[in-house]
Amino acid sequence: MSPSDRIVFDEVSKFYGEVLGVNRVSLAIPPGITSLVGPNGSGKSTLMNLMCGLLQPTVGRIRVLGVAPGDPEQLGRAVGYCSQHDAFPPGLTGLGFVEAFLLAAGFRRDEARRRAWQAIERVGLAEAAKRKVAAYSKGMRQRIKLAQAIAHEPRVLVLDEPLNGLDPMARAEVIALFRDWAGGGRSLIISSHILHEVDMLSDQVVLMNQGYVIAEGDIRGVRGEVTQPMQVMLRCAEPGKLAARLVQLDHVVEVQLHEDGGGLHLRTRDADGFYALLGRIVVEEGLAIETVTPLDDDVHAVYEYLIGGDGDAG
């Protein structure tokens, strides 16, 4: 993949006076869905604002699909942005809001109207399109912001906390929209503190803490890099027999039998090695395995290992 398909941060730092925003970030974000995850103040929004040209890096260089964020004419075509702020220009209807910025972009009136309707229908707000945005519910306002961000069909969509305020139904719809959006080789960058949704949604994650990128890549790859032993749950008929074999393996550091006698819980330093040996053990011992479940190759576990806390990135 060429740099013109990626969002590239090259040794980027941003300081707000003496306060660190992000420090020495080097990233190359490929197309697909990328989630920025980290606690409050970790630098997620700063990173998004930098790639949108709303902030200037103190040092370093950014390119979004080969475009410098300081070139709004090109960047605005390529990028759609949905801020975390629940704010709108006053006095506009949903349709007027989406249409206004298409007209400002230079679309002709009929084309702007067509695109505005298309975007509004896509986020399921057609019925409320002619009502004032000020009268919208929180979820509707999130969706109209999304419509505004996608109306000009950008190749990169940057969404700061896009799932906030959406009810479960709307969440499911919006997540489906994201998947659909990112399908055609486009980039979707989202920040969210709802980790299980990030996990379901993302092709890759960027984990941030205190202004630093502490991990990036696809979630299983990141998990593989983490030196913490990995947890696996097995449900089987004779867990004691299986446990006796497993404790002989060098990379298995802990085995716990379930109280109901129907399974076990183990921690291993080499998950791939474990899976490779498991089949042999099962055949040799004649065991019947019901399920094998990796417990922590999700973003929640990775977050917990790398950043700490209970996984509430909020």
Partner: peptide, 18 residues
């Protein structure tokens, strides 16, 4: 006014020279 109503980014993200 746009800064106070937190809506200036809509203008800045439009493909328009500042």
């Amino acid at each position: 006014g746009d800064v106070m109503s937190r809506s200036l980014h809509y203008w800045f993200m439009s493909p328009v020279r500042r």
